[in-house]
Write a protein that binds this DNA or RNA. Structure first.
Length: 878
DNA sequence: CATTTCACGC
DNA sequence: GACGTACGTGAAATGT
C-alpha cells in the first residue's frame, strides 16, 4: 500500500477560517470560530484523503531567517487580533486529541517545514498532499505533490497538479517564485518590480522562463517603461525571488516516519468537542449517541439478596461496598451493602447487616480481610452503628488516587470505565442528580451496588500490580491506608464548638457591619448592594472618579489588592475593606460554622478529602477547618470558639517550623541551606544575608520581608510575575531576586534544573515516599502550560514530601497515644500542624511526645523542628 | 443551577 | 515578545 502524506499549513488555514466565519463563542466565552473552521476542514481531509502520515505545520514566531535578507518582510501586517491568537493553543490541543502531529521551527515558517517534508515525500515517491490558503505553496507542486488551495471560505479547495497549473496559470510550479519576484506580494510586503502585475509577469515568463533569463535578455523586452523598471529594480526582483523561495532543506527535527497517522479515538476527540461546544461535529465522529450506547446493555449479573447474615458468605477475602447517596457520610444513611467473596455476590440490606451479630463479628475481626472503596467513609459509616470495622487490606479509592492524582473522578464506575470494565452505570444515571436525586427500588439499587463490589473485587489485583510497578505499595499500605483509619476516627470524634461564643461574636459583628454599611452609603450618596462588585465598581470608578487600576472580564476589579492601592485616595476605601473583612467573618465563619454544628453535641465533623490534591496534601470540607482565620487579630478570635470537648481539658497545637524549606534543603542537598537549619538560624534573615550579601545586623526589616517572599515563592512554585505581585516590584526586579537566590544556593539551583529534566524524561515527579505527579505539559510548546508544569515539577516534591512527613507523623503519634494509654486525641491537621485536645494531666507527656513523634518520624539531613502551644481554646494555643 | 468575584488558610 | 501565572473551600451575586 502506498503512503499518503498530508501536510497542512496551520497558520494559513486558521487565519482563513477566522476571517471567513463570524466570531463564535462557546459557553465559556472562548472564541472558537477559527478552531471550528479548521476542524471542519480537518474532518473533510481525513475522510477524503485517508492519510497514512500527517503533519500540521505552524509558524514559529515573529522573526524568520527571511528577515535577515529583508527586515521589512511581512511588514505592515495587521497585528493578530487577540480573538484569533487565543485559538492557536486550542487547535494544537485539538490536534493532540486527534493524534495528529504538529510542528513549528524557530526562524522558519510553516511553508519551509512543508517544503522540506514534501521534498522528502517526493523523493520517496509518496502521494503528498499540501493544504494551504496561500498560493505561494504552488511552487511545491510536482508529479507526486498536489497542493490544495482553499477557495473563498475554507469549505472548498482547488487541487493544483502540474497540468492543472499549466492550464490555469500558464506556468510551471517552479516558476511561481519567478512570478512572485516580478509581481511582488503585498501581503508579505515583497516589493517585486513596479508596474509588473500578474499579466505582465506571466507574459515575461512564457517568453523567458526564469527571472535570470528575463534579465539576460532584458534588451529584448518590449515596452520602454517596463524595461526601465526591470533594470532599475533588478536588486528588488532578485531579493523578492529569494524571499519567495521556500526553503526545502530546513533543519527540521522530524522525519517522515514520525508522522504516521493511525486514526483518532472518537472518545478523546468528543471530550474536546464538548468542551468547545462543537455539538454538530460530534455526530460526524460517531460519538453522538454514545451516552445511550453505554447504558444500553450491561448484561445480567447474578447475586443473592441476604435476609439473614450467615458466616458462609464470608470467605476471608471479601470486597465490601457501602452505598450512600450524599457525600456527607457523617449524616448520610447507608442505603445498602454489596459483598463479593471468592465465589459469589450478595446484596445485604442495611438493616439486615447492622442488626446482625454475625455481620458485626466478621466486620470487627481483624483477621478477616476486606477490600473496600473509601476506607474512611466505610469506617465512619459503620461507626455510627457501633460497628468498628477492622481488617481492611485494600482501598480502591486511595489506590486510584496514588496511581494518578490528576484524575478528578475516583468513584468505582469511573475507575472501571478507565480500566476497561464498563458493565456499570455512573451513579448519576442510577440515582439522578441535583434536586432529583433519589433512592431507587431495591432491585435497581442492589444491582448497582453489587456491580460496584464486583468491580472492586475484579480490579484489586490489577491496581496492586500497578502500584507495585510504581513502587507505591508501601505508600498505600503503610501510609495512606493507616492514615485513612485515623482520619475516620478524627472526623467522627469531631471538634467541640462554643456556640454561645460564636453567636455573641455574630451579634457584635452584625451591628458593626450595619454601621459601616450605613456610613458607606452616606459617603456614596446612594444605597446599593455592597456585596456586589458589579454595583460597587461604578460607584468607585465613575461616581467617585477613583483611578481604575485593574479590570476584570466583566467590569472594574474591586479586589483587596486594588483597593489597598486606593486606600489614601478616598475615605470610603478603608471602610469597604473593613466591611469586606468583617463580612467574610460573619458569612463564612460565624454563620457558616453555626450551620454545620451538630445541634445535639455542639461538635463539628469536617471531612478530610484524602484523594484530591495534586501534591498529597489533605483538604478539608463541610466545613473547611483548614482555613480558620489567624493572620488578623479580628479573625483570629474565631478560634476562641474552638474548645476542648471535656472539662479540664486543653487544646494543644504543634506545628512544623519551615518544613518545606527543610525538605528542600534535604532534597536539594544544598550545603548552605542545610547548615542554616543545622545552626537553627532564622531562615528568612539568613536568606536576606545571602541574597543581599550583608551581615546579620545589616538586614533591614524590608530585606527580610523580601527574602521571606522569595522563600515563599520557592516553596509554592510561584513565578517571577507572582513574586513581583507579592512584593509590589517589577517582574524584572523579581527575576533578579530569584537569580540572586540561586547564586546563593547553588544546590537548590541544581536541584531545580535536575528535577525539571527528570520530569521531562520520565513524565512525572516523585516525593520522598514515592508519591507521583504526572506532568504531561512539561513538553508542551505552549509557553504558559510548559512554565506552569516546570514550576510544578520543582514545587511538588517539596510540598508533597512535607505532606508525606506529616501524614507519617500522624500515624506515629496516634500509635504512641494508644501505646501510652493516653486519652489525648488528634482533632485536626492543617498541612503543617496538628491540633489535639488533652486532659490537663497529660499536658506534660504531650510536650514530650508530640514534638518527638513529629520531629523523628523521618530522618533527613537537616533536623525537623516543631513548635507547640496550648491553652483553653484554639485561640489560646498560640 | 453554573459562573464569576472575592477572601480565608497553607 | 506576549503570554498570565500556587492550591484549596466557600459565600454571595448574577445570569441562565
Amino acid at each position: 500500500m502506498s503512503n499518503k502524506l498530508v501536510l497542512i499549513d496551520g497558520n494559513s488555514i486558521i487565519y482563513r477560517a477566522f476571517f471567513a466565519l463570524p466570531l463564535l463563542n462557546n459557553d465559556k466565552g472562548v472564541y472558537t470560530n477559527a478552531v471550528y473552521g479548521f476542524t471542519t476542514m480537518l474532518l473533510r481531509i481525513l475522510e477524503e484523503q485517508k492519510p497514512t502520515h500527517m503533519l500540521v505545520a505552524f509558524d514559529a514566531g515573529k522573526t524568520t531567517f527571511r528577515h535577515s535578507t529583508y527586515k521589512e518582510y511581512k511588514g505592515g501586517r495587521q497585528k493578530t487580533p487577540p480573538e484569533l491568537s487565543e485559538q492557536f493553543p486550542l487547535v494544537k490541543e485539538l490536534l493532540d486529541q486527534f493524534n495528529i502531529k504538529h510542528y513549528q521551527l524557530d526562524q522558519y515558517e510553516a511553508d519551509d517545514i512543508i517544503g522540506t517534508l514534501s521534498k522528502h515525500g517526493n523523493e520517496k515517491k509518496w502521494d503528498v498532499s499540501v493544504i494551504s490558503g496561500d498560493k505561494d505553496l504552488l511552487q511545491l507542486v510536482s508529479d507526486s505533490v498536489t497542493v490544495n488551495v482553499t477557495k473563498k471560505g475554507i469549505s472548498d479547495v482547488e487541487a493544483y497538479t502540474p497540468s492543472y497549473m499549466l492550464e490555469k496559470m500558464e506556468i510551471k510550479p517552479e516558476q511561481i517564485i519567478d512570478l512572485k519576484a516580478l509581481m511582488g506580494d503585498s501581503s508579505d510586503n515583497i516589493p517585486g518590480v513596479p508596474g509588473v502585475g500578474e499579466k505582465t509577469a506571466t507574459k515575461l515568463l512564457k517568453q523567458f522562463h526564469t527571472l535570470e533569463e528575463v534579465y539576460n535578455h532584458v534588451d529584448d523586452v518590449t515596452g520602454k517603461k517596463l524595461k526601465e523598471n526591470l533594470i532599475n529594480h533588478k536588486d528588488d526582483a532578485f531579493m523578492s525571488k529569494e524571499l519567495a523561495t521556500i526553503n526545502r532543506d530546513s533543519p527540521i527535527e522530524v522525519t517522515l516516519d514520525d508522522l504516521t497517522y493511525t486514526g483518532f479515538q472518537p472518545h478523546d476527540v468528543s471530550v474536546i468537542f464538548k468542551d468547545l461546544g462543537f455539538q454538530s461535529l460530534l455526530e460526524r465522529i460517531g460519538e453522538e449517541g454514545s451516552v445511550e450506547e453505554s447504558s444500553e446493555e450491561l448484561g445480567e449479573i447474578e447475586f443473592k439478596i441476604i435476609d439473614t447474615v450467615t458466616e458462609d458468605i464470608f470467605t476471608g477475602e471479601d470486597a465490601l461496598v457501602i452505598e450512600m447517596l450524599s457525600d456527607s457520610y457523617h449524616k448520610s444513611p447507608i442505603e445498602g451493602i454489596g459483598l463479593v467473596n471468592e465465589q459469589e455476590s450478595y446484596f445485604i440490606p442495611t438493616e439486615v447487616a447492622i442488626n446482625s451479630e454475625v455481620f458485626k463479628t466478621w466486620a470487627e475481626d481483624f483477621s478477616k480481610k476486606k477490600s473496600v472503596f473509601d476506607a474512611k467513609k466505610t469506617l465512619v459509616g459503620f461507626l455510627k452503628h457501633n460497628i468498628h470495622l477492622k481488617g481492611i487490606t485494600f482501598d480502591m479509592l486511595l489506590a486510584s488516587y496514588l496511581l494518578n492524582p490528576s484524575e478528578n473522578n475516583h468513584d468505582i464506575p469511573a475507575i472501571g470505565h478507565r480500566m476497561g470494565k464498563k458493565a456499570i452505570l455512573f451513579d448519576e444515571e442510577v440515582y439522578g442528580k441535583g434536586a432529583k436525586i433519589k433512592v431507587p427500588e431495591q432491585p435497581i439499587l442492589a444491582d448497582h451496588v453489587v456491580r460496584k463490589a464486583t468491580l472492586l473485587a475484579d480490579l484489586k489485583i490489577e491496581m496492586e500490580e500497578q502500584l507495585n510497578e510504581n513502587e507505591q505499595s508501601a505508600l498505600l499500605k503503610e501510609l495512606e491506608m493507616p492514615l485513612a483509619l485515623i482520619l475516620g476516627e478524627v472526623e467522627h470524634y469531631g471538634v467541640q464548638v462554643d456556640i454561645n461564643r460564636l453567636e455573641a461574636m455574630g451579634t457584635e459583628l452584625r451591628s458593626r457591619l450595619d454601621e459601616i454599611e450605613k456610613s458607606i452609603y452616606e459617603i456614596a450618596g446612594e444605597t446599593f448592594n455592597l456585596n456586589s462588585p458589579k454595583q460597587l465598581g461604578p460607584i468607585l470608578f465613575e461616581k467617585l472618579k477613583l483611578p481604575v487600576i485593574k479590570k476584570t472580564k466583566t467590569g472594574y476589579s474591586t479586589a483587596a489588592d486594588v483597593l489597598e492601592q486606593l486606600e489614601n485616595e478616598h475615605e470610603i476605601i478603608p471602610k469597604i475593606l473593613l466591611y469586606r473583612q468583617l463580612g467574610k467573618l460573619q458569612s463564612t465563619y460565624i454563620e457558616g460554622l453555626l450551620k454545620v454544628v451538630d445541634k445535639k453535641t455542639s461538635k463539628i465533623h469536617t471531612r478530610f478529602n484524602q484523594a484530591l490534591t495534586q501534591t498529597g496534601r489533605l483538604s478539608s470540607i463541610d466545613p473547611n477547618l483548614q482555613n480558620i482565620p489567624i493572620r488578623l487579630e479580628e479573625g483570629r478570635k474565631i478560634r476562641q470558639a474552638f474548645v476542648p470537648s471535656k472539662d479540664d481539658w486543653i487544646m494543644f497545637a504543634a506545628d512544623y517550623s519551615q518544613i518545606e524549606l527543610r525538605v528542600l534543603a534535604h532534597i536539594a542537598n544544598d550545603e548552605k541551606l542545610i547548615s542554616a537549619f543545622k545552626n537553627d538560624l532564622d531562615i528568612h534573615t539568613q536568606t536576606a544575608m545571602d541574597v543581599f550579601h550583608v551581615q546579620k545586623d545589616e538586614v533591614t526589616g524590608n530585606m527580610r520581608r523580601q527574602a521571606k517572599a522569595v522563600n515563599f515563592g520557592i516553596v509554592y512554585g510561584i513565578s517571577d510575575y507572582g513574586l513581583s505581585q507579592n512584593l509590589g516590584i517589577t517582574r524584572k526586579e523579581a527575576k533578579q531576586f530569584i537569580e540572586r537566590y540561586f547564586e546563593s544556593y547553588p544546590g537548590v539551583k541544581q536541584y531545580m534544573d535536575d528535577v525539571v529534566q527528570e520530569a521531562k524524561h520520565k513524565g512525572y515527579v516523585t516525593t520522598l515516599m514515592n508519591r507521583r505527579r504526572y506532568l504531561p505539559d512539561i513538553t508542551s510548546r505552549n509557553f504558559n502550560l510548559r512554565s506552569f508544569a516546570e514550576r510544578t515539577a520543582m514545587n511538588t516534591p517539596i510540598q508533597g514530601s512535607a505532606a508525606d512527613i506529616i501524614k507519617k507523623a500522624m500515624i506515629d503519634l496516634h500509635e504512641k497515644l494508644l501505646d501510652e494509654n493516653l486519652q489525648s486525641r488528634i482533632l485536626l491537621q492543617v498541612h503543617d500542624e496538628l491540633i489535639l485536645e488533652a486532659p490537663k494531666e497529660e499536658l506534660e507527656s504531650l510536650k514530650e511526645i508530640v514534638p518527638a513523634m513529629m520531629e523523628n518520624t523521618v530522618e533527613l539531613n537537616v533536623p525537623l523542628k516543631v513548635d507547640f502551644a496550648f491553652g483553653s481554646s484554639w485561640f489560646d494555643a498560640k
